[in-house]
Amino acid sequence: MLGKPTSSATAPEAILIGGSAGAIEVVSLVLGALPADFRTPVVVLVHLPKQRPSALAGALSGKCRLALREPLDKEPLAPATVYLAPPDYHLLIDEGPSFALSVDEPVNFSRPSIDVLFQSAASVLGPRCAGVLVSGANPDGARGLCAIQQAGGLVAIQDPDDAAQGAMPEAAIALCPDAHVLATTEICQWVQQLGAWQTSPRRGST
């Protein structure tokens, strides 16, 4: 199921999920399917109107067995935690790995921008991160997903026919033709397998 891992791909230290219009439903399903012992940190970025507290936390609370929160600047990525990109900031991965924030200009008319998050993760984590891009009506995220793939990380794209809005997945498929194109239920399994990949060798070694 993980399929076509490049030779450099390795168990991810972070799984990044990006989306826009129509993404909350998919993200809810993916997060809801994660077991309580899922260790790999998950970072979720969905374009939303700027407001505090974000609508995303409200929509996802109660649907996920893992700790759910918006990261602070410089906060280290911790296991068994789902991080939600706060509204009106860019969210980046920095050395550590830890989170960094910026209020630089919007990218692809978006702040937070999926490209900014994915490109920073590719730069810092290289093959040790995985990216998923789901439903959305604009092309943000395609270049970032491509950067993760070029850095050796695993990437998946929601099947545009299965997505509420196909434009974002289609833009990503055009830019990274080798990425897995998966239906929603397959994305749930794919993410779970990425987490299992991390935990199984560790159990053996401790």
Partner: peptide, 9 residues
């Protein structure tokens, strides 16, 4: 300066 933003800039 924080590297991640600095690189983009």
């Amino acid at each position: 300066y924080a590297l991640s933003s600095l690189k983009r800039r």
